[in-house]
Each structure stands twice: as structure tokens, then as C-alpha cells.
Amino acid sequence: MTLNDLWFVAIAVLWTGYFVLEGFDFGVGILLPVLGRTGVERRVMINTIGPVWDGNEVWLITAGGATFAAFPEWYASLFSGFYLPLFVILVALIVRGVAFEYRAKRDSARWRAGWDRAIVFGSAVPALLWGVAFANIVRGVPLDARHEYAGSVLDLLNPYAILGGLVTFTLFTAHGAMFLALKTTGEIRRRAAGVALRVGAAAAVLAVVFLVWTQFLGGTAATAVLAALAALAFVAALGAVWRGREGWAFALSAVAVGVAAVTLFVVLYPDVLPSLPDPANSLTVVNASATPKTLGIMTWVAVIFLPLVVLYQSWTYWVFRRRIGVRDIPA
């Protein structure tokens, strides 16, 4: 394995970690007005992700930084062609972060309701657009001989990409519902389990169609096995929810999201951004990469600091592992 291949794998791992961890964050935000019927219940829901949501976004920052440093051509083509959707995602994430911090700054129901809507917006938009973006990356986009995007924003709204957006939206929503069923008590826990089953059933159907379509785009026997594993894990997660085994449900849901993300990267390799309709203009792990010296320095930095990041984030989850409910919220 060359350093180019190693960093492609590393970036795949970072994006997979981001989707698994930030995915349930997005789900909690999307479900805020659905499961939180009172102000106190909404505060319980926000408190379940309060200690971890910003740490989960570290995976996105690291993935973006690693892409910029390891594959600058890939980064440049993505941000030129996908500029508008990525800008909208960035705005949504900023609004969401501000909403978490500002929601409790004033004792006003109207004030909190406004920031709650901002949380829903900041969660739903990325949950949808990340699927659209990654579906286009796997499918391919128009690139010219200089590897510059030669299409328009409307080219990104093709049926496959829209289906990808619906898959991530429903999958993250169900993932978040399973997290809430695991982390809460009382009525919120009961409602979350019900939503997980209903939304999860829709997500399962959409995901199967999307993975089969992806297989026809360039899948192999290995990707077929991975897609089947993701589907089985998610169905098992729904079964665990039905039996009231929230811990197993969330773990299996995380496996399903992670394996589905890995499947997309396996289908993509050795390209990093396929070109349609001319494959000769595609960006690959070779022609999009940085110099071997740059990749070597990055490898040593990752070896030193990545374990530290994993350790402190694991410690955070361990410290805040207890369930919470309405009774834990002061007046």
C-alpha cells in the first residue's frame, strides 16, 4: 500500500466516523419538535448531545483538512463544483452551533422557540445535503481536462443524488431516535423508540434501493457483501428497538451507517472524483495527491495525535453515559 492509498483509507475512516457520530446529532436536532412536546423535554433532548456534538464535528474538520493536505486537486475540484451546497452546509452548521449556545441565554419561550427552529434547520439541511454531495462524488461529475468542474448546480440534483440525500436524512433521523431511546427515560424514550421503527422502516427501503443502484454504478463482489452487511445490521437494529434493547439497537445502527459509508468509498476507489462522461478526466488517488514528502509528514502527525483524539472523545462519552429525563432538569 502506497501513502496515497493509506491516506485515501484514512479519509474514508474520518468521514465514516463523522457520519456515525454526527449522524445521531443530526437526528436528535431533526426530531426536536417531534419528540419534545414541552420546553423541558426539548432541553432533555439537547442535553443528550450537549457534551459531545462539538467533539463529533472534529471528525469533519479533520476530514476536510486531511483532504486539503493529502489530495489538493480533489479538494479544489470539490469546492469549485460543490461550492453552493457546501456553503449552505457550512451556514447550517454555524447556525446550529450558535443555537445550541444561545438557546438558554434568555428566559423567554419565544426566544427558545426561535433557536429550536434554528437547530432543526441546522440539523436537517446537512443531513440531506451530505447525501446529495457524496452520491455525486460516487456517481461522478463533469470534469474538463484540467480537472475543473464543468457542470452547474442543477447537474448535482440528479435522481441518484436526490435519493442519496433522502437516505442520509432518514437514516440519520432513525439513528438519532435510537440514540434518544438509549439516553433518555420516560415518555421521550417511548416516543423515540416508536419514531425509530417508523422512520427506520422508510430508511431501510430507501437505503436498499440506493445501495443496489450504487452496485450497478461500479460495485464488485466485495461491495455487494458490504452493502448486504449494512442492510442486515440496520434491520437487526430495528429488531432490537422492537424488543426494547436500545443499546444493541444504537450499536447496530452505528455499524449500518459506518459500513454503508465504507461501501461508498470502496466503490469510489481508485478514483476520488470520477468524471462523466469522459473517464479520462477523472481524479484518482495518484493524480490528485500531494507530494510523497507531504504525505509522509502527515502520516507521522496522524500516528501521534489521532490516538489522543480518540481517547479524549471516548472518555467524554464514558463520563456522560447515564440516561437523563425530565426529572433531571432543574426548574
Rank of each mutant, 00 (worst) to 15 (best):
I304D: 13
T48R: 10
F134D: 08
T168L: 02
I304E: 14
G39I: 12
Y18G: 00
G258K: 04
P307M: 09
F216P: 06
V303G: 03
V40K: 13
L283F: 01
Y102D: 14
L308P: 09
L21G: 12
P307C: 06
A228P: 02
G244R: 03
E57T: 02
Q215P: 05
M45V: 01
V209D: 07
R96H: 05
F179K: 04
R322Q: 10
T299G: 08
L128T: 15
V88Q: 00
A207H: 09
F8P: 14
E57L: 02
R112F: 01
A133E: 10
V9T: 14
R245K: 09
W315Y: 15
E57A: 00
G258L: 04
F134A: 11
R96K: 03
Y83G: 08
F320W: 07
F71P: 03
V98N: 13
Q313E: 15
V303K: 04
L154D: 12
T291F: 03
A249H: 09
A228G: 15
N4D: 15
V28S: 10
L197A: 08
F19P: 03
A99D: 11
V310Q: 11
G200D: 08
A240G: 12
G164C: 03
F169L: 15
V205Q: 05
A12L: 07
F71Q: 11
G97R: 03
V209P: 04
G81F: 00
S152I: 02
R117C: 12
V138G: 09
R245D: 14
V241I: 10
V301K: 04
P277I: 06
F234Y: 11
G23D: 09
A201Q: 06
V259N: 07
I30A: 14
V195P: 00
S123K: 01
L206I: 02
A237T: 11
G17T: 03
V141Q: 14
G50S: 11
A240M: 11
P330R: 07
L306A: 15
G200P: 01
L229A: 15
M45P: 00
L311M: 12
T220A: 08
N136K: 02
I324R: 02
K293F: 13
R327G: 14
N4L: 07
V235N: 05
V259H: 08
A236F: 05
R189L: 08
R190D: 15
F265D: 06
A230L: 02
T223Q: 13
L6M: 09
G219R: 03
G194N: 06
T48P: 10
W213T: 08
A124G: 06
G258T: 00
V209Y: 08
V95F: 13
G296C: 02
F8M: 12
A161M: 06
V266E: 07
T223C: 07
Y18P: 02
T316F: 06
L211D: 10
E57N: 09
V310L: 15
I304V: 15
H147V: 00
